[in-house]
Amino acid sequence: MFREKVLKPRVSIVCVVRKSIIVMLGPAGSGKTSLVASLGKWIEKKQLVPVLYVNLDPGAPYTPYAAEVNIREYVKVEDVMAREKLGPNGALIRSIELAREYLPEIVERIGRSPKPYVLVDTPGQMELFLFRDLGVEFVEAMRRVGYIIGVLIFDHLLAARPQDVVSLRLLATIVQLRLGVDVIPVINKSDVSSETRERLSRALSDSSSLLEELKSERGLLGEMSEKVVGVLDEYRFATRVPLVSALTWEGLEELYDMLHEIFCACGDLT
């Protein structure tokens, strides 16, 4: 049931421990929720570090992890649909607007947790978090709690062509600019053929290889893609793009190592 908002004075956050915060983003169906669950279990099992799971999707009635902080405690899409007579899309947008009102309480709860690692699952429709105020306000508030890294997740099917790889790298840059955080792009569901994996790995990590593939694209598309790659190389923020599988846990160690390197470089040793 929808909880009526009670106006409170500004919340003072008391952090039990400075946290390493990972915000998962990606298009619908890319496997954000599954990867949150798998990476969290991997960290707990392999690194023996407690993980706090946070769900910011008001439309997710089930998650494969136990969310100790869950936006659905405050706002549920189905309740908004019934109360305000909205369709699914309209109710999602309205739910995100309502969720902003509870950010101080949500951030305070995260800050008070003794768990040093925080995994944040964002709405299935990435644009609701990235291009509306919820995402920016959440990230700004969470800076008082710890250091934040974004993980941008793509399905390998969305990186089948060389221009798709360019789009992935460009979107990672947009996420970085919009939220003001370091971003690691990853390819999820990497349990594909070795040939596909090798091509993806080569195109994602080696710009010369990607530019070679782009030569087969004639006209404006190929020319524009080549110029975009050149600009992205000047401001490159990730030296490698891990191929991971939420199903088999393949690549999670590499992803964790990259996360840990960034956290450590920023003085947050966990």
Rank of each mutant, 00 (worst) to 15 (best):
G90T: 02
C264L: 06
R10I: 12
V145F: 10
E4H: 12
E195C: 09
G124A: 15
T239K: 12
L211I: 15
I262Q: 10
G222L: 05
K227T: 13
P9L: 07
L128F: 14
E4C: 14
V77R: 05
R236C: 15
E195F: 10
M142L: 15
G111P: 07
L204S: 04
V51E: 04
V49Y: 05
P64I: 09
E73M: 00
S245K: 01
V16M: 09
V49M: 14
V23F: 08
E195W: 07
V54E: 00
D164V: 03
R178S: 10
M258D: 09
Y117H: 02
I43M: 03
L157T: 09
S209A: 13
V139N: 02
L232K: 07
E127R: 06
D257F: 03
P88V: 11
M258I: 02
P61D: 08
P50S: 13
L134N: 05
M81T: 04
L92M: 15
S38G: 10
E253P: 01
R178M: 11
T239N: 12
V183G: 04
Y74T: 02
L134Y: 11
K46M: 14
R112W: 08
E78P: 02
G222N: 08
S34W: 00
K5H: 14
I43Y: 00
G31F: 00
L200V: 09
K32S: 11
G146W: 02
V175A: 14
V151Y: 01
T122P: 09
S193M: 09
Y65N: 04
